[in-house]
Computed example of a mutant assay.
Amino acid sequence: MTVRIGVIGAGGMGREHITNLAAIDGVEVAVVADVVATAALDAAGLCNAAASTDAFAVARDPSLDAIVIASPDDTHANLTIAAVERGAFVLCEKPLASNVADAERVVAAEVAAGRPLVQLGFMRQYDPAHLQVATAIGELGAIRHVRSAHRNTNHQWERPLELVFSQSLIHDVHTARWLMGTEFSSVTTQVVSGPRPVEHVVVLGAMADGSTVTIEFVEATYGYDIDVEVTCEHGMVTAPQPAQPVVRFEGAGHQHIGDDWFGRFTEAYRAEAADWIAGVRAGEVRGPTSIDGLAAQRVVDAAIRSAVSGQREAVSPPFVTSGRT
């Protein structure tokens, strides 16, 4: 059967999803919505879709099997709820919502719908390098520590701490939960200012099983760079860097890193799209869930509180525990 998709949000992330979904056999991106009419028309032209400026009309359209939400963060919760209330599957970019209360509303709406419908865009769970780590740690005993380093090139604007967490570090939070199969119980946050209001962030997390997490974030100037390493009882695993050729020229060797997440996670986004569509066809959610989105939001909330208070802050547990897959 043909799966008819509506995409809400015609920015870079929405266009990435349009391109990946349109390349899957049996998928029709039927409509693209954006509050900016010219942006909607331009993105719709990528796949010969209709264009709309009414996001809620698209979310509630009964002719669409599933909805992608790649609009601004503060619209995610209400648009997801609108789609869920009519029984549509949703792929929502992170964060699930802009605050914990709204994330809880999304989960409540999904519970009321009577079945899982929402997948979160934590695409690292589909990244080959992260999957290699998840496979390798299975033979090394219990996890004792996860360290994640997130170096993000951000030349366009200076982000406040809340956006650094909701747009960037929330990925590292989910990675830790996914790999470790346990929840954050508390966090301590240290923020260093420099040329930007938020230059460097370190989050120390205590997990419910006694293990620990270190998340480091830097507004880097040289490129977009992600590292993750896991220390277990009997060894440790470090994620490989994506394979890139080393070019030797004019007395120097150079290996391309890239300056944004689209290049780094191209394969992950494609795999995410394919798995989401397979789940829609099977009537199930296969990737990160709304509970994962809520759990990550609660960690982010506690980490921001810690940055303000200077103290370790407790993390409220999610409704259920998401195990390692």
Rank of each mutant, 00 (worst) to 15 (best):
V315H: 01
V106T: 05
V320D: 07
M207R: 08
P128G: 10
A10G: 06
E229Y: 00
A112S: 12
R281A: 04
V201Q: 05
R286A: 07
D74F: 13
I215G: 03
T2Q: 14
V299F: 08
A271M: 08
G12H: 13
A108F: 03
L46T: 02
V320C: 00
G12C: 06
A239K: 02
E267Y: 00
T325K: 08
L41A: 15
R270W: 03
V192N: 09
M123V: 14
H130R: 05
G310M: 08
F249G: 01
E229H: 06
L131V: 09
V146F: 04
T2R: 11
V198D: 00
H174E: 13
H76A: 10
Q132T: 14
R177I: 12
G223A: 12
G141T: 07
R324I: 08
H254M: 14
V32D: 04
D301K: 03
V315F: 04
F262Q: 11
G87Q: 05
T19V: 13
E229K: 09
D34K: 04
V90H: 07
G223Q: 09
D34R: 00
G293Q: 10
T80E: 03
D61H: 00
I277Y: 02
G141S: 09
V218L: 15
A37S: 15
G235N: 10
R115A: 07
V58Q: 05
I226T: 02
D292L: 07
F89A: 04
V228A: 13
V58F: 03
A83P: 06
S290D: 13
T188N: 01
A303N: 06
T135H: 14
I8K: 06
F249C: 11
T231I: 14
Q311K: 10
V280G: 05
P62C: 12
V36R: 13
L41W: 00
L64I: 14
G251T: 08
A112L: 09
A142R: 15
Q255W: 00
L140T: 05
A50P: 03
A49K: 06
G235Q: 11
A303I: 06
V173Q: 02
A77I: 04
C232D: 04
A113R: 00
A101T: 13
A129H: 06
F56K: 12
E229N: 11
D61V: 00
V164E: 00
S148E: 07
M13R: 13
A109E: 05
L79F: 05
D275L: 02
T231G: 05
H174I: 01
R60L: 12
Y224T: 12
A83F: 02
H171W: 07
D227I: 05
S98M: 08
R248K: 09
R115Y: 05
